[in-house]
Amino acid sequence: MSTGMPPAGTGVPAEPQPRRTQLGPLAQVVEVLDSLPGGGLILTTVESALNWGRASSLWPLTFGLACCAIEMMAAFASRFDLDRIGVIPRATPRQADLMIVAGRCSIKMAPIVRRLWEQMPEPRYVISMGSCATCGGPFFYDNYSILKGVDQVVPVDVYVPGCPPRPEALIEGILKLQERIKKEPFLRRQALAALDGRAGAR
């Protein structure tokens, strides 16, 4: 495996090579399977089954910041009942794969949001719920303490506008995320990332 560094002592910088990360055993199988005739078909079928499972069991981190958290709670409660589409709230980021940033995020809170996101295992997704989390919303102008959009600290997949959004709007955002997850090249992800020269897929 090449490290991309010039060999010691030559003094001449080597041709920059795309950095190739070590493939895991699963990714190696995927790569081999992908090169075989008909392997792509098997891979895609397995992939869609896996993606269906992942999309049907999105576990969000219960992470209420402000007003939108109340509507998020309402979405988990009896009338809208997010459990029926497999969205079960988890209290710790280690068990979560979706972060719903509900409400305005202050500059004091921003590093904590980032740390919680980093504590979540990959693949992870972020829904920005409400105007304040999306871009600061009502707190955009004349304000010194609110972050102008939570996408300044974490990458956001789906934006749900509203102040606060109805629980239905949040469910619609989650369904939209499910659609995106279903289309993801989940198995090829690692191989693709390695070929791109980027370590760790996102």
């Binding site: 004091k108 809170m109 904590i112 707190f139 102008y141 004349d142 304000n143 010194y144 303490s145």
Partner: peptide
């Protein structure tokens, strides 16, 4: 405290 400080009193002076 202060994790949700939204400086609303200051903002009101501008609206």
């Amino acid at each position: 405290i202060g994790y949700l400080h939204s400086s609303v009193e200051k903002m009101m002076e501008h609206r």
